[in-house]
Design a protein around this nucleic acid. Structure first.
Lengths: 186, 186
DNA sequence: ATAGACATGTAAGGGGTTACATGATTTA
DNA sequence: TAAATCATGTAACCCCTTACATGTCTAT
C-alpha cells in the first residue's frame, strides 16, 4: 500500500468520512505532508472495501447526492497500526522557491526582495491557517467532541505544520537581510 | 520546462558540470528541495544542447570513461533568470513520518518514543551534513574559489536546509514531550 | 440565471523512479 | 578478487495530476 492510502486509513480511524470529506481533509489539514485528489481517493476507498479494511454506510445528504460514509474495520485498524509502528523514511520536498533562490545572486536585489516578500506572505498565511486549525482542535478537545486518539494524531501534525511554517517565514526574513547585505557589501 | 531542469540550469550557472556531477549535486546539496536521478539528468542535458541552452566539452577523466562537461550559454542564462524572477509556487512535501504520527495516539507510548528518537537522529544527521556544507562554502568564499553569484545562491539554500532540519529536530523533541504528557495525563 | 459547494466516479497523459546495460579504475 | 567510485546512457513501469462526465442544491 501507498503512503496516501495509509493517510486515508488514519483519517478514517479518527472518524468516519466520505470520499468528498477525505478530499477536503487532504486539502485543508494534510497538505503539508501528503496530498491527494478525487482520482486517488475514490479508487482507494473501493480497494479498502474489497480488502475488508473499511465498510461504508449510505447516508442521505442535506444537499447533493447520497454520501458513502466509510469507517475502518478492525482489520483496517490492524493494517494501519502495523505500518505506523515501523520506522519512517525521510521526508521528500519539492520547493520551487529554493530552485529560484539558486539564481538570486544573479538577479537585481529589488526583484529578489519582492519575491521573498511574496513568499513570506504565503507562508504567514499558511501559518495562520494551521494556528486556526489548532485553536479549533483545542476547542473540540475541551468540549469532548473528539476522541483522545484523534486529538493526539491531529495535534502532532499541526504542531509540525506550525513549526515548519514559522521556520519558512524566518528564512524569508533572513534571506532578505542576507541579499540586502550582500548587495551593500559588494 | 520542469523544475528539475531549471535546477540543473542553475547548477550549471554556478559552475560547469557533467551529468555525473549534477547527479551528485542533487543527492548531496539539493535533496532537501529537489531530487533527480541519472534518467532525468542525461536526457535533460541532451535537451539543453538541442535548445542551445548549454554546450559541452569532452574532457578525459582521471579514472573511468570520458566526461562531458556542460556549461550554460547566454541563452540558457537568459531562460533561467526569466523563470527565476517570477513568483514561485508553494513547496510540496511528502512526509511519511507525519502520516504515521496520525496514528501515534493509537500506539503504545514506548513505541512512539522510539520512532521519534529515530526520526530525531535522522534529522540531526541531516542538520550536521548541511552545517558541514555551509562551513565548506564559507571556506571557499574566503579563499575566493567561488564566484559571488554561486556563493549567494548556495548559501540561501543551505540556510533553508539548516533551518528546516533544526525545526524538524525540535518537533521530534516537542512531540516526545507531548505524547509522554498525554500518556501520563490519561 | 449563474456561480459555488456538494457528491461520486473514470480516462488519459506526463513525470519520475527503478532496473537494465556497459565498462574502467582504485582501494581494501 | 570483490566492492566502491567513476562515467554515460536507455527502457519499462508506476504514480499522480489534469481533464472529463454527471447531477443536485443553495445563495447571490
Amino acid at each position: 500500500m501507498k503512503m496516501k492510502e495509509y493517510a486515508m486509513l488514519a483519517a478514517l480511524a479518527h472518524s468516519p468520512r466520505s470520499g468528498y470529506d477525505l478530499n477536503k481533509w487532504f486539502d485543508r489539514a494534510a497538505s503539508h505532508f501528503c496530498s491527494a485528489g478525487y482520482s486517488s481517493v475514490y479508487p482507494a476507498l473501493a480497494l479498502f472495501e474489497r480488502e475488508g479494511l473499511a465498510v461504508h454506510d449510505t447516508v442521505a445528504s442535506d444537499r447533493g447526492p447520497e454520501r458513502k460514509v466509510y469507517s475502518l474495520t478492525d482489520k483496517g485498524r490492524g493494517v494501519l497500526l502495523e505500518w505506523a509502528g515501523e520506522p519512517a523514511g525521510a521526508p521528500e520536498t519539492r520547493d520551487e522557491q529554493l530552485v529560484k533562490a539558486l539564481s538570486f545572486g544573479m538577479l537585481p536585489v529589488e526583484t529578489v526582495r519582492g519575491l521573498l516578500e511574496e513568499a513570506r506572505e504565503l507562508h504567514r498565511q499558511k501559518l495562520a491557517h494551521y494556528e486556526e486549525l489548532e485553536r479549533k482542535l483545542e476547542e473540540q478537545r475541551e468540549s469532548g467532541e473528539i476522541p483522545h486518539q484523534a486529538y493526539v494524531g491531529t495535534k502532532l501534525t499541526l504542531m509540525r505544520g506550525i513549526g515548519a511554517e514559522e521556520s519558512y517565514v524566518r528564512w524569508c526574513e533572513d534571506a532578505t537581510s542576507f541579499v540586502t547585505d550582500a548587495a551593500a557589501g559588494t
